[in-house]
Structures are given as C-alpha cells and as structure tokens.
Amino acid sequence: MRYIKDIPNDKFKIGLYQWNNKYIVKIESGMYEQTYKIDDYEVESAAEIERCMDKLFIAAITSRFDAMHGDFSESLTRNEVIF
C-alpha cells in the first residue's frame, strides 16, 4: 500500500493511500477505524477524493463512529467483559 498524504481534519486522522488500482481513505478515531475504497478509474485525481471530505460526510462519519462505539460497549457489557 502506497501512502499518498494525510487529509487535514480537526476531528479525525484521515490518510489517503493507493493500492491495487484503488484509492483507500482510512479514517481513524481512537480505537475505531473506517475505510473507504474507490477504484482509481472512478476519479481523476486524489484531489477529488479530498474534496469529498466535506462537512456532511464528516458528520456522517462522526455518527457512524458513535454507533460503532455504542455497539462495541454494549457487547462488552452484555458479555460481561466489562461491568
């Protein structure tokens, strides 16, 4: 996997990579991660992908991270891993 660049963001670490004819956007928040894969023929440049990291998309990502945290916490509690 070839690292291209970090995409600036105040809330998350967003990395852009290229691998197997795909762009990979990796968004990290603490112990959680979301990954999006885009075929490189679908976009003209990495700049187009960077433009997609707009406020609405970041809001959706935030909501998804919150849901991931809730799901994992509930499973840990339900299975008596934490109390």
Rank of each mutant, 00 (worst) to 15 (best):
R2Y: 07
Y3K: 11
D6F: 14
D6V: 07
P8K: 15
N9H: 15
D10R: 11
D10S: 11
D10I: 01
K11W: 10
K11L: 14
K11Q: 13
I14G: 07
G15F: 02
G15W: 02
G15T: 08
Y17T: 06
Y17D: 05
Q18H: 04
W19P: 02
W19N: 13
W19L: 12
N20I: 04
N20L: 11
N21D: 12
K22I: 01
K22D: 05
Y23Q: 01
Y23T: 03
I24M: 04
V25T: 07
K26Y: 01
I27W: 03
I27Y: 04
E28Y: 04
S29R: 13
M31W: 13
M31D: 15
Y32K: 10
Q34P: 00
T35P: 00
T35N: 02
Y36A: 10
Y36T: 07
D39A: 04
D39Y: 01
D40A: 03
D40C: 02
Y41L: 07
V43K: 02
E44D: 15
A46S: 14
A47G: 12
E48T: 05
I49P: 15
I49F: 04
E50A: 13
C52I: 06
M53N: 08
D54M: 04
D54R: 06
D54W: 03
L56F: 09
L56D: 14
L56R: 10
F57Q: 12
A59S: 08
I61F: 00
I61Q: 08
T62G: 04
T62S: 13
R64M: 06
D66T: 07
A67M: 12
A67S: 13
A67K: 13
M68I: 11
M68G: 03
M68Y: 12
H69M: 09
H69A: 14
D71E: 09
D71L: 07
D71R: 06
D71I: 06
D71V: 03
F72L: 13
S73K: 12
S73V: 09
E74P: 00
L76Y: 08
N79V: 04
N79G: 10
E80Q: 13
E80T: 09
V81G: 06
V81P: 08
V81R: 12
V81S: 10
V81E: 15
I82C: 05
I82V: 15
